[in-house]
């Protein structure tokens, strides 16, 4: 897992002209954290998961009460010079607790709607707190992870059908009433990029131009001519994938995607080969976390999905997200190591 980390480190730093130093620092830190986490026995994850979860919930409430405001949302807690974003760590905490719950209850039956109530609450509390921040993207992400995990834990097909129905209906209601103006605009922008007064459709078009102009081989390292992309406020975070494509082309993307697929499958294979059910479920959760981040980010920059602010794992600039995936890898390594002990 460390190798994957290192690989990403060498690559992502290429696009971050002024920021790469900071980013490198974050990489070192997250590698360090990953190593530390990997030294923890998996049974400790199991033991302290509730405690960790409660701690995170308290942090999330604190953010709502006295968080630092940035770009119209309260997402950060200021701890001296460090800004932390509890919603990032909340994803991991939720995965651990869900893992513990799914491991304990009804170990060998298929689950129905009834068994889903308590895990839904477990996932729901942080989700609601995060959506209140407001950070709809991360909130929905937790729900998606929850879905993958319960699916893995043998959710009945019938129940899945019911949930899908509820999802569609509530989604419609949400769009009508629950979304903020800018979120709704993003969706309508996606549906019709030209018709946007604020120019966020412009981002989508520029992103597409960047990707498309990469063609098969790309323009080469540091040769991104799509300089107008500089107009994007998030070209080093959410839109790294477009620049990557512009510089390295389809070939580069194939390579990158292959790496992601290898990583995801390693997680998945690990999940099916570990001896303990808790470890297995947690691994699926981790896999889901990385998977959703990757797929949502890629679809968004290629114009398959509306623009939501989710970073690309290991690639995008941002300390919190790197740290999160560092911890992911740490936990994976720890679980993987514990398997070898048998």
């Amino acid at each position: 897992m460390g190798i994957v980390n290192l690989y990403s480190a060498t690559h992502a730093s290429t696009y971050l002209s002024g920021l790469y130093k900071t980013q490198l620092l974050w990489y070192c830190l997250s590698c360090f954290v990953a190593v530390v986490v990997s030294l923890i026995q998996p049974k400790n994850f199991f033991r302290y998961s509730y405690f960790f979860y409660l701690f995170i919930v308290v942090l999330l409430i604190l953010v709502l009460v006295l968080g630092h405001e940035g770009m119209g949302a309260r997402r950060w807690l200021l701890l001296g010079p460090v800004r932390i974003q509890p919603s990032e760590i909340a994803k991991i905490a939720t995965i651990l607790v869900l893992g513990r719950w799914f491991a304990k209850v009804n170990p060998d039956r298929e689950m129905g709607l009834k068994e889903l109530i308590i895990p839904a609450i477990i996932a729901g509390v942080p989700t609601i707190l995060i959506v209140l921040e407001p950070d709809l993207g991360t909130g929905l992400l937790i729900l998606l992870i929850f879905l993958v995990m319960s699916f893995y834990r043998k959710l009945k097909w019938k129940t899945i059908g019911i949930l899908a129905l509820i999802g569609i209906i509530s989604g419609g209601v949400m769009y009508k009433f629950g979304l903020k103006e800018y979120q709704r605009r993003r969706i309508s922008t996606f549906l019709n990029p030209g018709k946007d007064a604020r120019g966020s459709g412009y981002n989508a078009i520029q992103s597409k131009i960047a990707i498309g102009s990469g063609q098969f081989l790309g323009k080469g390292f540091k040769q991104s001519t799509q300089a107008s992309l500089n107009y994007l406020p998030e070209n080093h975070t959410d839109f790294v994938f477009s620049i990557f494509n512009e510089e390295h082309g389809l070939l580069g993307s194939l390579f990158l995607i292959a790496l992601y697929v290898i990583l995801l499958f390693r997680y998945l294979i690990l999940a099916t080969t570990v001896p303990r059910i808790f470890d297995s479920i947690v691994m699926v959760g981790m896999m889901a976390l990385v998977f959703w981040h990757t797929i949502i980010n890629m679809s968004m920059v290629t114009g398959l999905m509306p623009i939501v602010g989710l970073p690309l794992p290991f690639m995008s600039y941002g300390g919190s997200s790197l740290l999160t995936f560092g911890i992911c890898n740490g936990i994976a390594t720890s679980i993987s190591n514990s398997r070898n002990l048998f």
Binding site: K208, G212, S213, L250, V261, S299, L304
Partner: peptide, 23 residues
């Protein structure tokens, strides 16, 4: 990921010339 790759193929190969010229 196949969908993503298909999309990338569409953008980079199918319409790639156009975008490249454009950029």
């Amino acid at each position: 990921f196949v969908i993503i790759l298909a999309r990338l193929w569409y953008l980079q190969i199918y319409r790639g010339d156009q975008f490249r010229l454009f950029s």
